[in-house]
Each structure stands twice: as structure tokens, then as C-alpha cells.
């Protein structure tokens, strides 16, 4: 178990280094950083001096080492457009994105799993057919369209929910949260549904097909033959076996929820990392782009690591115990 975690951690570090290299190369190949920083009237001597002072004349490897070491301490330099440390900008924006992603994931799981179970157990019920039809819409409609439709109905038409922003937030020191105020919740409702809808339909369909598969297995038949209640068979035996693949997909999806928040954040003007990133692209603000790339990769790696550990918690076959080798 320890060996497994160590191995996974090492792999994660390699992945992070590769991503850091990609981010680093952006500085080298998307324009000249000096040009981004100085005005037109700066003389070439001044430019050369600045180049020397920033260490841009050092060998590549040294520069990359410096970049990676700084990145490991969450120091990504100073934003060109905001003239503020990138880490500070992200610290302001990160809570907004993570809260949005968290709410979307909770929404996707809390609706997707029960709907999947229901449609698997009651295959012929009309409600199952409704769920499946709706899920088809959820899968095929692009996110921004759903967001715009929601804004149209609930903000423009009915005027119930705000169409942009985070509402009132409460500052908890390092974290500003919108989850403690009514207006924060109201503002979060539509963006999280928009962001989570696709994941929800995906999870629902996945749970449904896995559950149908599991319900056909011999151990479910045997569980029925032992006279267990439907509840015990469906939720004790079938659902737990269904969850193994669901955990993987959900983990991967959580990563993409954070990454795809860009679109939703743009539609709802949600002050998160995605919005910051989009503005950075428009202004060729490379430190922010690099930091965003590394942060997203970091979340993916972290989530994958957690998913792998969850497997161990759910599936005993993966636990290697040397004390008891297989029977006789």
C-alpha cells in the first residue's frame, strides 16, 4: 500500500514536470517576454540589462529549474496586465471556481446516481423514459447554450435569479465563500446546473448501464435465491459493484468540471480562474496562462491520485495482503 502510494506520487511528479515544461516553453515561444514588459521607447541597452537581470540569458535548463522551483512554491511571477503577483490573482479567483466545481459535482452525483439506479431498476417506467430523453438533451446541447437558455428563462423572463456574478461573498481570511449568503446561493444555482448537467447525464447513463450489467451477474441471482430483500440486493450488492467504474469516471469528470468551468464562467461572468484565464489569453498574459495550465494539471493529478486510493477502499481484490495467500 505504502509502496503503491509512493509509486503514484513519483508518477505524479513526472507528469507535473512535463506540464511545467510545456508552461515554461510558452514564455519562450509566445513572443518575447521583454517586449511584453517594456514600452516602445525603451532603449536596446535597457532591454539587454533587463534581460540579464531577469536571468533570461541563462542556459535553458537553469531557467527551467528556476521556473519549476518557483512554481512548486506557487510563485508564478507577476502578471503583465494586472501588475500583481499571479499567485495573488489566483488566490482571489480559486475559491470561486472550486465552489462552482464542487456544487456542480454534488449536483451531478446527487441527481445522476439516483436517476441511474432508478432507470436501471424500473426500466419500463414512464419516468425512466423521461430521464433518458432528458439526458439525451443534456448530452447533446452545448454548455453555453444551456447557460444562455437558463439565463433567458430564470433571469430575463421570470427574474428569479441573477444572470451574472457571485452574489454577496463572505471573506473567511484565505477563502471567500458565496455559500453563506442567500444571494450567493442564488447566483451559484444556474452556473452549477449548467456546468453539472452534462456530467449528471453522463453519470446517470453510466450508472444505468453498469447497474443493468451487475444485475445480470450470478451473485445477484444467488443473492435473490438466498431470499435477501430487494433493498439489500439492489443497494447492498448491486449498487456497490456499480460504483467501482463510476468512481473513475466521476474523478476524471471532476477534473474536467474545473477545466471546463471556463465556458460557464464566461457565460455567467463568474469571477473564477476560467474568466481570468480567458482575459489572460486576450492580453497574451503568459504568466497567468502558464499558472492556469499548471494548476489545472495539478488538480487532475491530485484527483486521479484520490480516485486510485478510493479503489482500494471499495474493492478488496486490489488490496494485496501477503498474510493470507489464496486458499488451498
Amino acid at each position: 500500500m505504502i509502496a503503491f502510494i509512493v509509486r503514484r506520487l513519483l508518477q505524479s511528479i513526472v507528469v507535473m514536470l512535463v506540464v511545467a515544461l510545456l508552461a515554461f516553453s510558452m514564455f519562450r515561444y509566445i513572443g518575447d517576454p521583454i517586449n511584453q514588459m517594456v514600452g516602445v521607447e525603451t532603449s536596446s541597452e535597457e532591454r539587454a540589462e533587463l534581460r540579464e537581470r531577469l536571468g533570461l540569458n541563462d542556459p535553458m535548463l537553469v531557467q527551467f529549474g528556476r521556473f519549476a522551483a518557483d512554481a512548486a512554491r506557487f510563485d508564478f511571477g507577476v502578471s503583465y496586465q494586472h501588475k500583481k503577483p499571479v499567485s495573488e490573482l489566483f488566490a482571489d479567483r480559486l475559491p470561486a471556481t472550486l465552489e462552482l466545481a464542487f456544487l456542480s459535482a454534488v449536483f451531478a452525483l446527487a441527481c445522476g446516481i439516483p436517476m441511474g439506479v432508478y432507470t436501471a431498476l424500473r426500466r419500463d417506467a414512464w419516468l425512466s423514459k423521461v430521464f433518458l430523453t432528458v439526458s439525451l438533451i443534456g448530452i447533446s446541447l452545448p454548455t453555453f447554450l444551456i447557460g444562455i437558455l437558463l439565463i433567458f428563462v430564470f433571469s430575463v423572463w421570470l427574474g428569479w435569479l441573477p444572470s451574472f456574478g457571485r452574489g454577496e461573498t463572505v471573506d473567511l481570511g484565505v477563502w471567500t465563500t458565496g455559500l453563506l449568503t442567500v444571494s450567493g446561493w442564488k447566483a451559484a444555482l444556474m452556473p452549477s446546473i449548467t456546468l453539472g448537467l452534462f456530467q449528471m447525464t453522463l453519470i446517470m447513463r453510466l450508472v444505468r448501464s453498469e447497474m443493468l450489467e451487475v444485475l445480470r451477474t450470478d451473485y445477484i441471482k444467488f443473492a435473490r435465491a438466498r431470499g435477501l430483500s430487494d433493498r439489500a440486493v439492489h443497494f447492498g450488492h448491486a449498487l456497490k459493484n456499480t460504483l467501482v467504474p463510476v468512481i473513475t469516471i466521476t474523478g476524471l469528470q471532476l477534473g474536467s468540471i474545473i477545466a471546463f468551468a471556463i465556458i460557464t464562467e464566461t457565460v455567467f461572468q463568474w469571477p473564477g480562474m476560467g474568466l481570468l484565464f480567458l482575459q489572460a489569453i486576450q492580453n497574451v498574459d503568459i504568466p497567468i496562462m502558464a499558472a492556469y495550465l499548471i494548476l489545472i494539471a495539478f488538480f487532475f493529478v491530485l484527483i486521479n491520485l484520490i480516485v486510485d486510493l478510493l479503489y482500494y477502499a471499495v474493492d478488496p481484490r486490489l488490496r494485496v495482503d501477503r498474510a493470507t495467500s489464496a486458499g488451498h
Binding site: Y219, F222, N241, D315, P316
Partner: peptide
């Protein structure tokens, strides 16, 4: 079922829930 009629299936490898 189980109380008054028990049943044994063909494949013991798949009759038990692995989890």
C-alpha cells in the same frame, strides 16, 4: 427463498459478491 427453498448455482466463482 433461502428460508424454505435453498438454491446452489453452477459457478461458485461468480456466485459470491467480490466486494
Amino acid at each position: 427463498r433461502g428460508q424454505r427453498i435453498g438454491m446452489i448455482f453452477q459457478d461458485p466463482l461468480t456466485s459470491l459478491n467480490p466486494l
